[in-house]
Amino acid sequence: MTLDIESGIRRPKIDMHCHVWLMDGWEQSADHLVASGDMLGITEYWCSSVIQQGILAPFEDVPPHNDTILSAMARHPKRIRGWCFLIPGHFQDAIDEAERCLDAGMIGIKLYNQYRIDDPVLHPILELASERRVPILQHAGYPVPEHRASQPLISHGIHFSEASEKYPDAILIHAHIGGGGDWEHTVREMRQASPNVYIDVSGSNLDDGQVEYAVSELGVERVLFGTDGTMAGSVGKVLDADLTEDEREHIFWTNAERILAQQGATPTELRIGN
């Protein structure tokens, strides 16, 4: 059977991993993101703005990132939802910031590479996330040593497995299977992880077989659709993956919908045909 790209593009999708950045012109960037989604059937984006490169910035630097996301949510309430970025080492300030953002309508917590997901400093955040039934999306991957040097505390599969052993109810998402690195390695490490541990398909690496591998190792209910800015690439890899239409639907929609349901939320738009 020939790939039906046209109808695949039109089918509704929830992009649970994307960004609107704290920068001059974020409004233009957010508008452009939404317009790009129109072309690819993406009905909503879950966005964050993060401090990268493992920088342990002072707490005062964090809220402006989240405020940008809250502004983007207000600008596009039907299309943009928010991840609250935190640096766990800010302890109570981080918890207070999470409460502020979640109370303002964000749907989860975003962590970058300041700490690994199994670091004890994260325990209060994992407890909060478990209690409020919100997911944690953590930047992750298993890059080669020269690429790991710039982010020595990047998490990979084994860290998710260990964190989920201690907090099996926490909804943990390993970001971007295609984010760069040995994706087979990091996925294999999560074989024994809690069923609440997910992975998303985003990233610029478009290796053939990647999506099927995640599905075979973790089960289709634990694979989420995200782009991280690789928009057509991420849509294309799921459309081209050797999966049933039902499995594709889990990735594009149902799994994200189920994560929202745990906190009493629903997709911003009803799926066409529902």
């Binding site: 790209i5 690819l40 290796d207 690439g233 294309g236 459309l239 081209d240």
Partner: peptide
């Protein structure tokens, strides 16, 4: 090496 889908999606849009 890569999926064909990404290039096909780009071609479509």
């Amino acid at each position: 090496f890569s999926y064909a889908g990404p290039a096909l999606v780009k071609l479509a849009i």
